[in-house]
Structure formats: C-alpha cells, structure tokens
C-alpha cells in the first residue's frame, strides 16, 4: 500500500470511484481522474487503484455512499489543506 497526500490545489478533488461494501468491488476503486482536479495535479493517484483509507480512516465495511461522503468531507474540510489516501494497486480481499 502507498500513502498519497493530495494537496487541495483545485476547487475539486476530481476522482470518480466505484465500489463499497456489499458490491462486487468491496473497497472503492478509482475509475476516473479528471484533468485539472487536485488529484490530477498531485500526479500520484492512478485509475485502478483501490482506496484503503482516507486521512487514516479505513473504508473497509463502508457502503459506497458512506465512502463517497467520507472522501467528500475530507476534501471539503478547512481543517487541513490536503487529503491523505492509502491506496493499493491490488484488489486485495482485506
């Protein structure tokens, strides 16, 4: 697993995710990275990566909407000017 710190360099995070608990893809997977978004500017997130944690919070067992909300809130909060993602290239069953 790799820790990627995405600085909030744009007004959007700019990733699309699929998956979550009780789906075929139990942990969220990055399916799109939008050009010009913070994630794209960061340059370290890639399509296909699985998101294990956001700011140290595990996504295991979270349904899609819950995981998406957690990521959205991490990006929205003014408490910090970055979001930490723990990602892996492998679709591990955790």
């Amino acid at each position: 697993a790799t820790l990627v710190r995405v600085a909030k360099t744009a007004s959007t995070l700019g990733i699309a995710i699929e998956g979550g608990a009780n789906t075929r893809q139990p942990l969220p997977r990055i399916v799109t990275i939008q050009r010009g978004g913070s994630a794209h500017n960061c340059g370290q997130l890639k399509v296909g990566q699985i998101i294990l944690e956001v700011n140290g919070v595990s996504l295991r067992g979270r349904e899609h909407r819950d995981a998406a909300r957690l990521i959205a809130e991490a990006f929205k909060t003014k408490d910090r000017d970055y979001v930490d993602f723990l990602v892996t290239e492998f679709n591990v069953a955790l």
Partner: peptide, 16 residues
Amino acid sequence: VREKRLTLPPSEITML
C-alpha cells in the same frame, strides 16, 4: 426455476 445469485451487485459510480 430456481436462480442462484453468484455475484454481488455492481456499484454505482460517484464523481468527487
């Protein structure tokens, strides 16, 4: 006819 579900449903996609 009895249908057996072998796979979990697909997930929706959310743009963030």
